[in-house]
Every structure is written in structure tokens, then in C-alpha cells.
Design a protein around this nucleic acid. Sequence first.
DNA 1: GTCTATACCCGGATAGAC
DNA 2: GTCTATCCGGGTATAGAC
Lengths: 186, 186
Amino acid sequence: MSSRNRIESVAHQTVQKSGLKNLSFRTLGAEVGVKSSSVHYHFPEKSDLGGALIQRYRQSLATTLAEIDDASPNAYDAIKLFSKLFTQECSEGKICFAGMLAAEVEFLNESNREGLQAIFNMYHTWLLDQLNQAGDELKIDLPTPTVAHLLLASLEGALLIDRAHPTNDRLSSVNILIDSWFGKIN
Amino acid sequence: MSSRNRIESVAHQTVQKSGLKNLSFRTLGAEVGVKSSSVHYHFPEKSDLGGALIQRYRQSLATTLAEIDDASPNAYDAIKLFSKLFTQECSEGKICFAGMLAAEVEFLNESNREGLQAIFNMYHTWLLDQLNQAGDELKIDLPTPTVAHLLLASLEGALLIDRAHPTNDRLSSVNILIDSWFGKIN
DNA sequence: GTCTATACCCGGATAGAC
DNA sequence: GTCTATCCGGGTATAGAC
């Protein structure tokens, strides 16, 4: 893999652990095996690195969501798979990439903020799409946009709190909620 | 107000905006009108300041929750009031104090982490208590601990995302969810 | 309790050789 | 594309005067 790609890959995981503001070009370089000046060669300023990570994630997310869509015969399976993948990105002290950036939105420039919003829009649009196709699979009367917002918010919050409070109580509660919405409980 | 108290008050809000790791004794002092060495006089290390803020918040939270309890004739009112106060602490680019600390849990020492967990426990215990007293006010069949976890997680996530995505879509969705759980919709 | 002064470190960023 | 060397700013923290 090119060193630029390796930098991006390590940086992405570092952001999930400690955020972009607290990521250092020096230690990032050390983890990849180059000097900080080499990192600056690829990403002149930190906001350039941030922009590249956001872009990269948007593309990979688009692919992932399309794959889930293809692999799922119905909305329930799709959303359960979404929740599973969303969670799997976050083992070992990591939280959602977009969630971490949201926590440090104060330190992002305009362009990076817009990229972050685009990620959240992507999540929401996809979820909404699934819910709108669910038909009578969905056993509740809330508007689908509301349900989509709730899904994303509860997943983000669950990952956040569960990392600080190492039981998976919040995350499994979200999964129970999804099951109940699709009539898989009671 | 004593300068120690003023420091704590300003620091608390700064944490809600940009976190504890990115809070600087220098600029904190400047905002309060003293030098950084004076801040160090009261809080030798940053973890001491963190500990004081956590302690302070725990106490104020205990008081607040007790007051909501007293002021609310039923579980629905109590929880709506909870959601309202939880939100009001977070105007102007701020998010939940505990949520922000959870995002930077990597940088907290053991003692501060335990204090943070105690805050989340306090939220959860109080919510659970309300739900357990709700009786047939509650129109859903999920276990009350699950509901309490979901309430907290969705509120945290909603505040987080809504700050980055300046509509209040997530927060108002949580309020709709609460209404539906108590049969105030449909 | 607050100040000045200072030590020390680490971060971002750049210049210029290879 | 990567390196060494370097500058600068800002952060934590401490010593010692008032």
C-alpha cells in the first residue's frame, strides 16, 4: 500500500480513538514509519488530512451501504446489518468516525464541517430509504424520517456512552428497539 | 463569587464546547481574569480540575433531578422536563458535559473515568426510577432498563449530531419518541 | 491567593538537501 | 517522496516574590 494510503488508514483509526485535533503529525508519521515532514508532503495542513479522511469515508460508506442493500431481502435485515457494521467499526476504544468529528466540530473548518454533514446526510438518507420501503414490516406509527433520526442518534449515543461505561447495555438496547419496531419481539 | 468558583464555572462551559483535553490553563485564566499560575494554585494538575468539575456536576445533577421529581405529578412530565433541562444546558455550541468527557475518555485518568461513570449511572438510575413508577402510563412493552438506556443514548446522540448538523431534527425526534411511549401520539 | 518569570515539551509548519 | 534541521507558538507546570 502507498504510504499516503497507510497514513490515511492509521489516521482514520486514530481519529476514532482520540479525535483529529489531538492527532499529531509526528506520532502519526512514527506509526507509519515516516517523518512528520513526509506527512506534511501529502497533507500540507491538518485540515487537508481531515478533508481526505472525510472524503475517503464518504466513498467507503457509499459502497458499504449499497452492499448492505444488495445483500438484504428486507428492511429489517438491512437495518440490523447496518447496526452490526456500524458497531464493528468501533471495537477497541474506538467510536464512530463521524461522531468523534461531531464532538470536535469547533475545531473543523467550513469545508470539513460540510463534509461531516454530508456523512450524516448519507446515513439518514439510506436509513430513510430502507424504512420507506419497509411497508407493513414496520410496526410503529412514527413518521419514517423521525425513526431514521432516532436510529442514528441512539446508535451514536450508545457507542459514546458504552465506551466510557464498558458494558454494552446501550448498544444492545438499541438492537432491542429495532427488533420491537419490526415486530420481532412480543 | 470566589475566583475558584469562577474558574470552575467557566471551565465547565469550556468543556462542553471543546473538551477538557483542549482546555488551556492560560486561556481559562484569561477568561476569568487571573494568570495560569493562579489556576494551578487551585488545581495543581488538569486532572484535579477535571475531578472538581465532575464532582461539582454530580452534586448539581442530584439536586436538579430531585427537583424535577418533586415538581412532576407523573412520569411523563418528569421525563419531558428531564429532556428539556438536558437540552437547555447545551445551547450555543455546547453539548452534554458528560457526553463530551465520554468522547475524550482516552485522556481521563482512572479517578476521572470513575466519576464520569457515576454521572451516567445517576442519569440511568433516575430515569429507571421514573419509568418503574410509571405503571400503565407507559404504553410499550420494552423492559424499563432498556427504555432508560435508550432515552439517554438517543439524547446524547441527538445533541452530538445536531450540533454538527444545525437543525434540531434529532432532538425533536427524541421528544416525539417519548410522547409515543406515553401514548401522547396516535 | 496572585503575580512574574521561566523551564520544558510538544505540536504545526517550512526550507532545502538528497 | 523522504529526510534533517529548524522556527515558532502554545501548552503544562514550578519557583519564588509580594
